[in-house]
Amino acid sequence: MSNPIFLALDVPQIEAAKELAGKVKGHVGGLKLGLEFFCAHGHHGVHEIAQLGMPIFLDLKLHDIPNTVAGAMQAIHVLEPAIVTIHAGGGRAMMEDAKAAAGENTKVVAVTMLTSLDDRDLSATGVQGSAHDQVMRLAELAERSGLDGIVCSGHEVGAVHKQWKHGYFVVPGLRLAGNSVGDQKRVVTPRQARDDGASVLVIGREISRAEDPLAAARMIEATL
């Protein structure tokens, strides 16, 4: 992929999403549609965005019993997504079934640990060890389950890349140096994440909430 940036279109309105994507499409490599958008517009909304002619990343974070997740994967075949997310916490059988049910050209990647969580959040849910330890454990499980890669923060992607040489790594929670981190806790810059082995850089508010989204997208692209 020549441009690893996927713009997160985390808005509920189709027209607003299409307008934003149309402004910056020359400086991003794909478009990410999350739960908010998908729950509001479903297949129709994805088809509308796909008309822009860019790869679509469906960030649905599927997490259920294996049969249910496999059925959900089959239900989105027609959308031909480039990337779909599931939760690594669903276990090996769920991940194996998700990959088996996915389209041939769809990369299935497992969310290891949300970038809004830190060590204390892990401890509160009964998980022992650091965020880094948890990500490494789940990355190993995802690889053994036959997935294409994982979603992790920029803090872990370098170590995961060393462990999983040919994995496909999606890194969200990216911020430009000096900008507010908002609700994220484990953030790095796009350049750092790319240097450490990220395959895809998910960028949302750094572009979508900028005074000039086109200028912001162009500036971020220039740093890579």
Rank of each mutant, 00 (worst) to 15 (best):
P66I: 05
H47L: 14
S116Q: 09
V111A: 02
G53L: 11
G197P: 01
L58P: 02
Q128I: 13
Q51N: 14
A21H: 09
F38I: 01
T223N: 09
A70C: 08
Y168G: 01
S153A: 11
P190E: 05
A17M: 11
G126C: 13
K165I: 10
S116F: 10
V160Q: 04
V11H: 14
P55H: 06
I203D: 00
G129Q: 11
L224Y: 06
S208L: 06
R92I: 14
E211M: 09
G90P: 07
E104Q: 14
L224N: 05
A142Q: 08
G182N: 10
R194N: 04
V24R: 04
A101D: 06
L122F: 12
M54Q: 15
D212W: 07
G29C: 08
V187D: 00
H166I: 00
R137D: 13
G158R: 07
A72G: 14
M73C: 11
A177T: 13
M219H: 14
V187Q: 01
T68H: 10
H132G: 13
R120H: 14
G149N: 09
S2C: 00
Q74A: 11
N3K: 07
G103P: 04
T106H: 02
V28A: 05
A88P: 05
L33I: 09
M95H: 04
A142E: 07
